[in-house]
Design a binder for these strands. Structure first.
Lengths: 160, 160
DNA sequence: ATTTTTGCAAACCTTTTGCATGGAA
DNA sequence: TTCCATGCAAAAGGTTTGCAAAAAT
């Protein structure tokens, strides 16, 4: 994918567009699905792109702050990131099998939240909604395998 | 609060009810709002209850596995736990100011998820939904303070 | 010029693990 | 008596930080 939008977001936020940040943007743009800071460190090493580990962490923080990526927590508790469009409000569905994510928009979620505010008296300032499942591709694969060997697939962990 | 339900859940799950686990149950039951493993370690030390750090981590894992507590991730990325009724499906609203949590039930969330499955083709196996906001008590406090000094309160971070 | 950013390495924090001992069922 | 659970201390991760040098505006 093209890293330019990430760099534009950085520039638009008044942050400096530096060499290392370009590198991180390229790495982020080339991920497909979610990725951890460690993934980027490893891939930078593999591609012989020299960026300090601290810079990767700091850049990911900055990107999350400006909305170019979102920090998510996998059911395992690992911290991961996903690339996303900065603008509108959305959530991610994460495939437990291949890690690919897909954005879904807020939809009627807002109504549900409004009702919860009414019921509890809390003012809800922010929320974190992460959905885990199996994407169509992996599902098809799993089905095929099931037919052959009776493999039942896997269920992800947390269901809060 | 009363730690007995926690111990009963442990027993009902075929785990052993041991001294250290009783201690952890008491600590958990006395938390109000969310708490981290470190909180329990600190409080155990303060109350001069001798439990190994590893045991606290292991017991929290076990409690989460049997549904006596739920592991959540705060907007800051910290791992925390909240006490909860094991049985039915629910979510937590966490007060960003005082940390108190309140359970809300699934409600129409299930419908929303079903629609998302339809739209994306993903099969959703599990989800993690955490809501952050301000509870009625803190909200009142914040308002009072605002009137006096123009304090604007705080917004939590992540809004996925 | 000025201010931000980087890289490195060390520091920090949280969580896990090996293993011998102790305790529940 | 037989496993399961504990404690300790060490190890393992993951993330942050201080600081001098380098780069961006």
């Amino acid at each position: 994918v093209d890293p330019s939008p990430i760099l534009e977001t950085i520039a638009a936020s008044g942050l400096r567009v530096t060499g290392p940040r370009r590198t991180v943007a390229v790495l982020v743009a080339s991920q497909d699905g979610h990725f951890t800071a460690a993934d980027l460190v490893a891939e930078a090493a593999a591609r012989r792109l020299r960026v300090g580990r601290a810079t990767i962490f700091r850049t990911l923080d900055a990107l999350a702050a400006v909305g170019a990526v979102e920090r998510i927590d996998l059911p395992s508790g690992e911290h991961a990131y996903v690339l996303c469009r900065p603008d509108d409000h959305h959530h991610h569905v994460v495939c437990a099998s291949c890690g690919r994510t897909r954005e879904v928009d807020d939809g009627r979620m807002a109504d549900v939240l409004a009702e919860i505010e009414r019921l509890t008296g809390y003012r809800i300032d922010s929320h974190r909604i992460e959905l885990y499942g199996t994407c169509p591709v992996c599902r098809r694969r799993a089905t095929r395998r099931t037919r052959r060997v009776g493999h039942t697939g896997q269920a992800a962990g947390t269901a809060s």
